[in-house]
Design a protein around this nucleic acid. Structure first.
Lengths: 151, 151
DNA sequence: CCTTGACCTAAAGTTAGGTTCAGAAATTAC
DNA sequence: GTAATTTCTGAACCTAACTTTAGGTCAAGG
């Protein structure tokens, strides 16, 4: 019952609501680094609960695990993160979120324009190749709603 | 050179910017239904250019292919969709988009609250289990930032 | 000591949304 | 009438983010 024996993976799973398998997966992705006890089992700090919670929140904001790892690298490695540390890296999320909201609102404006004119045609309608997740549609130009650029 | 021989899949691909493989995949998912010519090749109507464009726009709005199929089922099956038809189903997208923007803005407000108080702890901080994409985090309650419900 | 439950690793399976490949048949171009 | 393109099908492969499985090991209770 020595102090700071750390949390076992099952305890961490219960505290965060994550699956044990997910926590091991995050370790493989470099998001969390437990130490091992004499028997080879993973042991976690209490601060890791917060770390995983941050991972979950960041995922809701649409960050990928590599991106989250990048953001987390802003935390101090040599000591337990303070509230101020968390505040600092949360601001990265805030920026991301602002951008996403902005993009979606522009998308909405464009859709409104298209509904308004009833044409749904391009290039008048700006719903083509928005810069949001253009990559998610593959690369190269896209000509939407039936009109090629030349008409 | 008879009229209405329809578009070959390659032509449709060039008009939409989609890959031929993607168009065939969408057919397998029930998003588009070409007919076949004497030789067994797919032939498309010009209206299908618009249909696929709608698919691409809807994807940017975060709809899954099954959801898009559902929305497209609102189009008339027996005739070429009119601008009014497109306007009608576009309003479904508008609603979806409004919801997403709303969710993200609430998420931002919550994050602001957490940054403001510097605590990042729950249940004070509302960044837990937001209704946005809860399913994307798996099922069941999640207790974030280090606090179990009972304290 | 012995059992039960938690934990270990590595590999394979899962879902979404596609892409790539192989080999054959249809179309188009010259 | 060839040659070059396109298209066809079905199956395998791809990424992200995990889960599941198989076969064993560790830890805690009685």
């Amino acid at each position: 019952m020595a102090v700071s024996e750390g949390l076992a993976i099952g305890a961490l799973a219960r505290r965060t609501g994550l699956a044990v398998s997910a926590i091991r997966y995050y370790e493989a992705q470099g998001l969390i680094s437990p130490w091992r006890n004499a028997g080879g089992q993973r042991r976690y700090q209490r601060a890791d609960i917060r770390r995983l919670s941050f991972v979950m929140i960041a995922q809701q904001f649409g960050l990928t695990l590599p991106e989250i790892r990048e953001v987390l690298s802003g935390l101090p490695g040599n000591r337990t993160p303070t509230p101020h540390d968390w505040k600092t890296i949360s601001e990265v999320l805030r920026t991301r979120l602002d951008q996403r909201i902005d993009t979606l609102m522009r998308l909405r404006d464009n859709l409104d324009g298209c509904i308004g004119c009833g044409c749904l045609s391009l290039p008048k309608c700006k719903l083509y190749n928005p810069d949001d997740r253009a990559k998610s549609l593959g690369s190269g130009p896209r000509y939407l709603m039936g009109d090629t650029p030349e008409g």
